[in-house]
Each structure stands twice: as C-alpha cells, then as structure tokens.
Simulated assay, not measured.
Amino acid sequence: MLLYKPKKNQTGKGNRILISITVLGSAGPIRFVVNEEELVADVIDTAMKAYAREGRLPVLGSDFSNFVLYCPSAGTEALGPWETIGSLGVRNFMLFKKSSQGENTVDDGKQSPIRKGAGSWKTWFNKSISRKIASH
C-alpha cells in the first residue's frame, strides 16, 4: 500500500505564479515566481533586489518603501503594501517611485502614469522612454 505524500506547494501555502514587473526607464521587465499569498511590500523588495543584482539602470536604491506597485489593467490605484500579490488575479505590474510630496498621485496638470483614461499611462511611458533615448 502506497502512502500519499503531498507536494511542497500543496501544503496550504497557495499557488506560485510568474509575475512580470516593469520598472520605468529600464530595458525590460523583471520576471520571477512568487506565492499568490505574498505581500506586495515583499514583492517590491524582491523586485528591487533582482533589479540591483542584474545591474540594471537607472539605479533605484534599496529602500522599497519609496516605491509603489501598480497594475495597469486593474485601475489607477496603487496596490497597498499589505495586500496579497494574487488578490487582483493579474500578473503584470509596473513599479514607480513615490512622489516627493508623499502622495501617490500627481495632480499638477502634467501628464502622469496615474491619469484616468484609456492608455494614458502608455502615452506617458512612451514619452519618457523617447526622452531618454533622444538624450544619449
């Protein structure tokens, strides 16, 4: 008679998912596997460590509390640091540095990644990339 041994990922820890985090100004997204029940703050910390380990530019620093994680397809609100990464059911995210005023949004009339409307963050992202490419 054989005894059933549960696999390690079935011991109540949740499913593991592959996520993709795009950092503004970076060459491409960072991809890694996380547990669905992992907190957003931990995911930001892991992403920043992976980013630094790969030697990517621009240099972000090491304080993950200065950054917020957005899901472009789920709305314009940043994910809270105590939310679970799997709570929205999406796997693509964008990492932004918090504004210097302590707010997550910018309402000074300039175009920002948080504006409402279809594709507004994409327009802002493309403009910021084209400025960086044109300056080199």
Rank of each mutant, 00 (worst) to 15 (best):
Q101A: 12
L79D: 01
R91D: 15
S128R: 13
W82Q: 14
L57P: 00
K49D: 10
R56W: 01
G75A: 03
G75Q: 03
G28F: 07
G28L: 06
N9E: 12
K98T: 06
S62A: 07
M94R: 14
K8N: 11
R31L: 07
E54K: 12
K110I: 09
R91T: 15
F125H: 12
N92F: 11
G12N: 05
S130N: 13
V23W: 04
T84C: 06
S26H: 07
P72S: 03
F93P: 06
M94S: 11
A47G: 07
K49E: 15
L79K: 03
S73R: 14
P6L: 11
G14Y: 00
D45S: 14
L39C: 01
P72M: 02
M94F: 13
T22R: 14
G117D: 00
P81K: 12
K116F: 09
I17E: 07
L24G: 08
T22H: 13
N92I: 11
I30G: 02
D45T: 13
S73H: 08
N66K: 05
A78H: 03
P6N: 08
N126F: 13
K122N: 13
N66F: 00
V68Y: 02
T22Y: 13
L24F: 12
S130R: 15
G28D: 14
I21C: 08
A41P: 05
K97S: 04
T11A: 07
D63F: 01
F32D: 01
N15A: 12
G75E: 06
K98S: 02
F32N: 02
G28H: 09
C71N: 10
K8P: 11
P29G: 07
V23A: 08
I85D: 00
A118W: 13
F64A: 11
R31G: 05
L18K: 10
I129V: 14
G61I: 02
T105Q: 04
Q111L: 15
A50L: 11
I85E: 00
V59C: 08
A78Y: 06
S112N: 15
K116S: 13
K110P: 04
V34D: 01
E77G: 06
P81I: 11
Q10I: 05
I30R: 06
S73A: 13
N66W: 01
V68N: 02
I21A: 06
G12C: 03
S20F: 07
L39V: 03
M94D: 12
F125R: 14
G89T: 00
V40A: 02
V106C: 13
G102E: 01
V68W: 01
A78E: 04
V59E: 14
F93E: 05
I30E: 09
Y70H: 07
L60K: 00
T11Q: 11
Q101P: 05
P29F: 05
S65Y: 01
I129T: 10
R53N: 15
S128N: 12
W121G: 04
P58T: 03
K5S: 09
Y4I: 12
E103K: 13
V43T: 09
V90C: 11
G61Y: 01
L57N: 05
M48I: 04
L79C: 07
K7R: 14
E103Q: 13
E83N: 09
G75I: 03
G75Y: 03
L57K: 05
M94G: 10
K8Q: 15
